[in-house]
Design a protein around this nucleic acid. Sequence first.
DNA 1: CTGAAAGCGCTTACAG
DNA 2: CTGAAAGCGCTTACAG
Lengths: 342, 342
Amino acid sequence: MSRSSTGKVRGTGRTTLEEVAAHAGVSTMTASRALSQPQLVSDATRTKVELAVVELGYVPNRAARALASAQSRVIVALVPSLSNVVFTAVLDGIHDAIEHGQYQLLIGNTRYSDAEEEKLLRTYLQSNPDGILLSGLTHSEQVERMLAGSRMPVVSMMDLADDPTELSVGFSQHDAGHAITRHLLDRGYRRIVFVGAQLDERTLRRADGYRQAMQAAGLADPRLEIMVPAPSTIALGAELMREALETLPDCDAVFFCNDDLAHGAIYYCQRHDIRVPQDVAIAGFNDLPASAWMVPSLTTIDTPRYRIGYEAASLLLDVIGGREPRERRIDLGFTLREREST
Amino acid sequence: MSRSSTGKVRGTGRTTLEEVAAHAGVSTMTASRALSQPQLVSDATRTKVELAVVELGYVPNRAARALASAQSRVIVALVPSLSNVVFTAVLDGIHDAIEHGQYQLLIGNTRYSDAEEEKLLRTYLQSNPDGILLSGLTHSEQVERMLAGSRMPVVSMMDLADDPTELSVGFSQHDAGHAITRHLLDRGYRRIVFVGAQLDERTLRRADGYRQAMQAAGLADPRLEIMVPAPSTIALGAELMREALETLPDCDAVFFCNDDLAHGAIYYCQRHDIRVPQDVAIAGFNDLPASAWMVPSLTTIDTPRYRIGYEAASLLLDVIGGREPRERRIDLGFTLREREST
DNA sequence: CTGAAAGCGCTTACAG
DNA sequence: CTGAAAGCGCTTACAG
């Protein structure tokens, strides 16, 4: 026992496993086994140790465990935003999928910045995570290199990797963009504007899907694409709706890259007595809760963001645990919600 | 060097500080100082060590650091929900306030459950956090006991502690509920319904504020209070609006405990040609982004949730760092937004 | 300004 | 089923 008469010189002062073992009358390593691999220990021993744990109020020291076992039981999740409900839903799913007590979750907000992602990753690598959840498929070279060097499992969230051996969970952003454009075309709209903000990789892929559908219909026109790097907000949606109507007076539909923008557009139209969809149709992306309720209700793509988080974390846990997953690329799909706005 | 000819028997296999020190031609402890307390080391030494770090791609092992220093540099934040934007905004603020690289954030979702809070806390205590951020002022006895036993600083978020020596950051939920009721009374509304959902402590305090204002005006009536334990959603807001109009046909205003419910109510009224505020006024709480844009725009209380997270984390970091804060109870206030719905 | 050495609190091949 | 002992990779009072 490393106590002087005046108490511990260093350390946290908390009860240690050594003390638990002494209290239970067993060796430290037996106490350790009784807690982490109880099946390797006799019932009597396990009971003695468990009793000692309760009596002494023992709380294991995770740092010591991580150091000795070279397993941190930490997983890292990096998302581009903590104010976008899409990504907080993903985190919600991840949180629910993690076996708490076993694994701990470290969350990082990259703010849609490669540099920030790199910085966070560098910091979090200090914790020697057992695995990492990343948003998106494209990352800086530095990040790719750090990941390759660390040899720890990485799951990409949101979109599907081209390579089916890479771990990814999401749905085809391209196909979803294509599907909603196809829907507008089927409804008879011809001059369909695409409005993209933030211009992250998901928005760009949705734009690709839009473009491909328009081309297939012989209706593509670069002037119909409004792309701004500013973050998506309701206010921006209202502003861009105004802009679209002003600069493209012959447009008959607008596909916004997400619901936040589309909501702003619908509110704008309400305030200016522009009839939706009679004067102009509006479509969004993500199916936020308000979309089904607002007037008119919003046509949009329902995306499985909570499930993406949940399934991505489950997949990562499988791989960490050495369980071969049924598939390494999990397509969760999307659902077109046809509503009043189109 | 503990390498056998076949490589490390245990450990992560990553470069260690010992190797960095050898490469730089200094002792391990000097290398340690060069990195964590560079001012204690000569320029020449620091340069040599920094070079070795880069050349070897050294990444410090946080578990070893935590174990040796008895300082985890971990802070824990517990919030009741990861789908409520109020709390994800709080987390956003916390995340931004943390000096990354220094401190790491462990997030827990208590799901508005005392039992869950207790379980998460028990788990997270294994990481020996340097401090904790909790949502709300009331916790289970078990939680209070664990916190008291651990002697680590705890900051309460959202509401203000009665005891000014306790660490708390937020605003008076009671006063805010009172203020918006007062506003409705000033506008001439008399039969003001209060609708509360979830029934967490914040909702109950807002209800108290409402009740007190109604009593002061001689207009209190228990039948005007609709309280349901279900979580707040737009759908529930629509449903409760219908219920209010049906069971209390003489009501002239409804104060919803949050904007999600109020949005549902406004959409409900739009769909049923109920004029707001002419037929019935509607008020909310939190000032979500849509509130200023919807038609009619929503009267509500603007709450500083991002700043609560930011200031709470800053306060905690001050206390952890031994810096005496100017005040231990930080009132961030709230702002009444008077809009079209009242 | 720099170093030798102990120690933080666990886990784990290896024996028995 | 149980144990002795080394080791994980850092930090830190204490000297000099």
